[in-house]
Amino acid sequence: MQEMPASKAYRLLEAGPIVLVTTSDEGRPNVMTMGFHMVMQHAPPLIGCVIGPWDHSYKALQASGECVIAIPTVDLARKVVDIGNCSGGEIDKFKRLRLTAKPAKDVTAPLIGQCLANIECRVADRSMIERYNLFILEAVRIWVDAERKERRTLHHRGDGTFVADGKIIDLRERMVLWKQFQD
């Protein structure tokens, strides 16, 4: 085995897909790319997200308490990277990257029409924002594009490379203690 710096632990543990987070800043939509997020519990559905003051979206999320977590697929990989390489404080990312902003039902932040799924969220707990830049969000509504042919998500390896979801291994019959979560 080879040793690697402990600061690179995220490269081994980042299991969730890269997501896009939309916010609304005084009526102006914005979007950012995010890799640091985690499911925290099933009910109520809580999601932890690291968004720091260096991100333009931080101020909008702090002010509105709402966002949308959009799940892009591999066909959007270049746009996902381009979104992360510019600031919504300087440009309209929706316009520049030709993203379709669709109205959400319960939050002011827009859904992204090109994404596989969109999760409308509200900030549920602010206690870890100042210390860790960790927003605890509650999912309030989910939209999935059932007609979308491309369903593979992107997983960042922390160094500019990505892995795409691959073959599904179905072991539902063995998950006897977790049947209530199967649909």
Score class of each variant (00 low, 15 high):
residue 132 Y to M: 04
residue 130 E to H: 11
residue 119 I to A: 15
residue 114 Q to D: 15
residue 136 I to C: 08
residue 128 M to H: 12
residue 149 K to H: 13
residue 138 E to H: 09
residue 158 G to D: 07
residue 139 A to P: 08
residue 133 N to Q: 12
residue 129 I to V: 15
residue 127 S to R: 13
residue 158 G to I: 13
residue 131 R to H: 15
residue 148 R to S: 08
residue 138 E to D: 12
residue 118 N to A: 14
residue 135 F to G: 01
residue 152 R to Y: 03
residue 141 R to W: 12
residue 127 S to P: 01
residue 140 V to P: 06
residue 154 L to Q: 07
residue 131 R to I: 05
residue 153 T to A: 14
residue 137 L to E: 12
residue 166 G to D: 06
residue 160 G to W: 03
residue 178 W to I: 00
residue 124 A to M: 01
residue 161 T to R: 14
residue 116 L to S: 02
residue 141 R to G: 07
residue 120 E to K: 11
residue 122 R to L: 09
residue 123 V to H: 07
residue 107 V to Y: 08
residue 163 V to P: 00
residue 175 M to A: 13
residue 126 R to Q: 11
residue 178 W to M: 02
residue 112 I to M: 02
residue 139 A to K: 06
residue 142 I to G: 02
residue 135 F to K: 05
residue 132 Y to L: 09
residue 119 I to R: 08
residue 160 G to H: 05
residue 170 D to W: 04
residue 154 L to E: 02
residue 163 V to K: 07
residue 135 F to A: 01
residue 143 W to G: 07
residue 116 L to W: 10
residue 172 R to L: 05
residue 155 H to F: 06
residue 114 Q to M: 01
residue 166 G to R: 13
residue 169 I to D: 05
residue 110 P to H: 08
residue 134 L to T: 06
residue 138 E to A: 14
residue 118 N to M: 13
residue 166 G to V: 03
residue 165 D to C: 03
residue 149 K to D: 13
residue 131 R to L: 11
residue 121 C to S: 14
residue 115 C to P: 01
residue 166 G to Q: 11
residue 158 G to T: 13
residue 164 A to L: 11
residue 138 E to V: 12
residue 151 R to N: 04
residue 164 A to V: 11
residue 139 A to T: 09
residue 140 V to R: 13
residue 157 R to H: 09
residue 131 R to W: 08
residue 127 S to E: 10
residue 166 G to P: 05
residue 132 Y to Q: 10
